[in-house]
């Protein structure tokens, strides 16, 4: 099951990211993972949060343009070559990775997830599952 990533448009200026995380902190949002893609003038903040509805609501109220994107959260085996086996599986399934970033599993657990944005979400999920990888769903992310 793909999970929902929130993407936010920010200008590339000092204080912009800080202002946004301030809004989220105020609303009690827990950010599970975050990555930045930037150009000279602007950037896109991509994040996985514990409460998607609340986050998009407060972002909208505060005038942030944002959108939801389906991404896959894969549990990465904690061993040498762990990430490599996941990517190999995707290559064999002919899935193109657009971007990826890391996320810790949560406060209690000692695991790491990789968040993947791919061209063919469903095909990627099926291939990973068949290869025995654990994929987090939205509930798992929210409960972490």
């Amino acid at each position: 099951m793909a999970i929902r990533q929130i993407s936010v448009f920010l200008e590339n200026r000092p204080g912009m990211l800080d202002a946004m995380t301030g809004v989220l902190a105020e609303a009690g949002i827990d950010i599970r993972a975050l990555s930045l893609a930037e150009t000279k003038d602007f950037g896109i903040v991509r994040m996985i949060v514990d409460d998607v509805y609340e986050t998009t609501t407060v972002l909208k109220e505060n005038g942030y343009v944002n959108s939801l994107t389906p991404v896959i959260a894969v549990l990465i085996p904690d061993e040498v070559g762990g990430l490599h086996t996941v990517l190999e599986t995707l290559t064999i399934a002919q899935v193109n990775v657009e971007y990826m970033y890391a996320s810790l599993a949560g406060k209690k657990e000692d695991k790491a997830y990789m968040i993947f944005r791919v061209g063919e979400t469903e095909r990627a999920e099926n291939a990973l599952r068949r290869a025995g990888f654990e994929i987090a769903d939205q509930d798992m992310i929210e409960l972490m």
């Binding site: 602007f42 343009v65 959108s67």
Partner: peptide, 15 residues
């Protein structure tokens, strides 16, 4: 100004 209609998660598309 960026608008919700014009925004996408894809940097290449925005460029």
């Amino acid at each position: 100004e960026m608008t919700p209609e014009m925004f996408t998660d894809n940097l290449g598309e925005i460029n």
